[in-house]
C-alpha cells in the first residue's frame, strides 16, 4: 500500500503541491488528472523518491520512504513522460542496460529482456536502433524498460503522448492486462480522459497543487448529478450570443467548443425556449442541439474551471 500523507512541496515561494493525500492500494489502478501546472509531476516525483517533500510523508506498507527510499525503489517501475532511452542503441541494448542497473545478470537478465520485449511487441525489432523506431514503438519500449525488474507498482506519466491510435490502444490494453491479470498496482496520469476512464478504478483530480476530488468515476460524476449539459452546434460563432448566454441567470456556465457552445444548466430547468429567443436576437443560427448527462470531462471542468488539455 502506497500512501501520501499531507504532502507539500514549495519551491521558494511557489507552492507546487499542498496537503496532498493519495492512497494506492495493492492491485489498484489509480488515475491522476489535472490541468498543466496542477502539481501532478511534482507529486509523482515525490512518490518516486526523486525529490523530498517540504512537509508530509510518503509511506510504502506503512513505512516512510522519505527516510528509506530503498524500501520502495526495487519494487517501483517508472515510465516517464519523456522517451528516457538511448536512441543510438538498439532496443535490446537499452533493455539490457536498464536490467543491469537493477542488478539483473546472466540468464535471468536474458529471460526478462526477452519477456518484456515480447510483451510490448518488439521482439522482432529488438536489434534495431531506437532512433529508427516510430513514436509508438519508442513509447512501448519506454514501458518495457520499466517492467524489466517485475515491479509491484508502476507509475506512468502520460505514457501515450503523441502516438498513433493503434499504439495507444496497444498500450492501454497492455496496462489493463498487467493490472487486472497480474495484479500490478498502477498510478496513471494522462491528458486523455477516456484513458483514465478505461483503465482506472479510482481517480484523483488535482488543481493548483491540491487534490480537489477523488473517487470512482460514478462518484465523481455524481458531483454534477444536479446538472446537465446542452451542446449547441452553431453555423458560425457569434460572440454577442455567447455573452448573452453568460448573462442568463438560468445558465450556470458557458464554454466555447470547436463547433459551437456548451452550456451547463440545472437539471430539469433547460429553458430551451429562452436559448432560442437569444439566438434569434443575436442572429445565431443553431444547426443542432444535444442534451447530455454530465461526463467526467464536465466534472473536471466544473471543479477546475479548465479543460483537461488546456
Amino acid at each position: 500500500m502506497l500512501e501520501t500523507i499531507g504532502l507539500k512541496k514549495t519551491f521558494k515561494r511557489h507552492v507546487a503541491v499542498d496537503d496532498a493525500n493519495l492512497l494506492l492500494k495493492k492491485g489498484e489502478s489509480i488515475g491522476l488528472l489535472g490541468p498543466n501546472g496542477a502539481g501532478k509531476s511534482t507529486l509523482i516525483s515525490m512518490i518516486e523518491t526523486l525529490i523530498k517533500p517540504t512537509e508530509g510523508d510518503v509511506t510504502w506498507n506503512e513505512k516512510s520512504i522519505i527516510k528509506q527510499p530503498d524500501l520502495l525503489r526495487p519494487v517501483l517501475g517508472v515510465v516517464p513522460q519523456e522517451i528516457a532511452l538511448y536512441k543510438e542503441l538498439s532496443a535490446y541494448e537499452n533493455v539490457k542496460f536498464f536490467g543491469k542497473i537493477y542488478k539483473l545478470t546472466g540468464k535471468e537478465l536474458e529471460e526478462r529482456a526477452e519477456a518484456v520485449l515480447k510483451l510490448v511487441g518488439l521482439s522482432d525489432r529488438q536489434k534495431d536502433l531506437v532512433k529508427t523506431f516510430s513514436g509508438g514503438m519508442q513509447r512501448r519500449l519506454n514501458i518495457a524498460v520499466a517492467l524489466l525488474h517485475e515491479p509491484e507498482v508502476i507509475i506512468m506519466d502520460e505514457p501515450t503522448v503523441g502516438i498513433d491510435p493503434q499504439s495507444r490502444n496497444y498500450i492501454l490494453e497492455m496496462v489493463r492486462d498487467l493490472n487486472r491479470e497480474q495484479g500490478l498496482t498502477v498510478l496513471y496520469t494522462s491528458h486523455y480522459m477516456e484513458e483514465v476512464e478505461r483503465l482506472c478504478d479510482r481517480i484523483y483530480i488535482m488543481d493548483n497543487g491540491k487534490v480537489i476530488a477523488n473517487g470512482t468515476k460514478e462518484e465523481l460524476i455524481a458531483i454534477l448529478s444536479e446538472e446537465e449539459s446542452i451542446e449547441l452546434v452553431l453555423e458560425k460563432p457569434i460572440s454577442t450570443f455567447k455573452e448573452a448566454l453568460e448573462m442568463e441567470p438560468s445558465i450556470l456556465r458557458v464554454t466555447q467548443e470547436s463547433n459551437g457552445l456548451k452550456l451547463i444548466v440545472p437539471k430539469n430547468n433547460r429553458k430551451l425556449t429562452r436559448i432560442f429567443q437569444l439566438a434569434e436576437q443575436h442572429d445565431a443560427s443553431i444547426t443542432n442541439v444535444n442534451i447530455q448527462i454530465p461526463s467526467l470531462e464536465d466534472v473536471f471542468l466544473h471543479l477546475t474551471g479548465k479543460k483537461l488539455r488546456d
Binding site: T49, P69, D70, K103
Partner: peptide
C-alpha cells in the same frame, strides 16, 4: 537529465 534516463538510474538500486 534532460532525457529522463538519469531519474531512471537514480531510482534503481544502483
Amino acid at each position: 537529465k534532460q532525457l529522463g534516463s538519469w531519474n531512471r538510474i537514480i531510482i534503481s538500486p544502483t
